[in-house]
């Protein structure tokens, strides 16, 4: 019989090493040990590390510092703001509402928010912001062009062609070239007013302005306190009719008429001045007398 104690050097694997090797060759165990176990250990270590609030805070500070150090690299710094397409007053306004203490990292700029603020200015139709190379914040502004002066209860204001407020005006004389509109709700009908003013070009030398009546229709105010009351619908045609009337035969507007009322679409109605009315009565009376004479 062999000695019960095995030889010191036995080439044969022991029962356990044999079994372990067979287990190792099993795909399931192999996968678990080679992938599952490291992944589990890693997750466990991360989880253990993170559960401590103090370490987590330190980690966050470290991450923030890292982030800041990258953001504040000179490549990402904005040193200059350049405004294009704005008048000096407007660019002053823009600089006022955007108090950026440059230089600033471009990561800290909220371009959308800034664009919203700039667009919120009355005089700005649209704004485009971009950070261009060389650390320049480029603001490209499209200004609103004032088209009319609006006299309201609050004072004089400049409006653009859509009726949007552009700026306040101190005196009418500051913008003499712009037509004047007045009345409540005139700002909501500016395009129509502009069309009327264009249509009134033949009498532009007499035109004082337009007045919105009852927020629904226009009066054309001429000098000598003359008015043309336009209907709610098709005011341009009515105005052109008045001008035609003026041009062709009767030269209406040059006469002693205070109001040309076009609100009744069938015929124009004229309101004479008191003297003219008296003169008319006198002439009628004269005519009647002459008739009696005859």
């Amino acid at each position: 019989m062999q000695p019960l104690m095995p030889l010191a050097r036995d080439p044969a694997p022991s029962r356990w090493s044999y079994r372990i090797q067979r287990m190792w060759l099993t795909p399931l165990y192999r996968g678990l040990l080679r992938k599952g176990l490291p992944v589990f250990l890693l997750l466990f270590a991360i989880g253990w590390y993170v559960t401590d609030a103090e370490r987590l805070e330190a980690l966050q500070i470290w991450a923030d510092d890292l982030r800041r150090s990258i953001e504040e690299r000179p490549e990402f710094m904005v040193r200059l703001m350049k405004i294009e397409g704005a008048s000096p007053e407007l660019s002053g306004d823009i600089r006022e509402i955007m108090p950026l203490d440059l230089p600033l990292s471009s990561f800290d700029l909220d371009l959308d928010h800034m664009r919203g603020e700039i667009s919120g200015l009355d005089a700005v139709a649209g704004a485009e912001l971009r950070v261009v190379s060389g650390g320049v914040l480029m603001v490209r502004v499209t200004e609103r062009l004032p088209a009319v002066v609006w006299r309201s209860r609050r004072g004089l204001e400049l409006l653009d062609a859509e009726g949007h407020r552009v700026a306040a005006l101190e005196r009418r004389g500051d913008a003499p070239e712009l037509p004047l509109v007045a009345g409540e709700g005139a700002e909501r009908a500016v395009p129509e007013a502009l069309e009327l003013i264009a249509a009134a070009a033949p009498i532009s030398d007499r035109l004082r302005g337009l007045r919105r009546i009852g927020e629904r229709r226009w009066d054309v105010v001429l000098d000598r306190d003359q008015r043309i009351m336009l209907p709610e619908h098709a005011p341009i045609a009515a105005l052109e009719r008045v001008i035609a009337l003026d041009n062709s035969a009767s030269d209406v507007l040059a006469r002693d008429v205070t109001v040309v009322d076009m609100r009744d679409g069938r015929r124009p109605i004229l309101r004479l001045t008191a003297e003219a009315m008296e003169e008319l009565r006198r002439l009628r009376a004269l005519d009647g007398k002459r008739g009696e004479d005859a």
Binding site: Q2, D10, A12, R15, Y18, Q21, R22, L25
Partner: peptide
């Protein structure tokens, strides 16, 4: 016992070469 060990040696070697259980 001896034979079992020898069989184990042979089987383990072949498995190792084949890399399959």
């Amino acid at each position: 016992q001896e034979t079992e060990r020898a069989i184990r040696t042979a089987v383990q070697g072949a498995q190792k070469m084949a890399n399959v259980r």
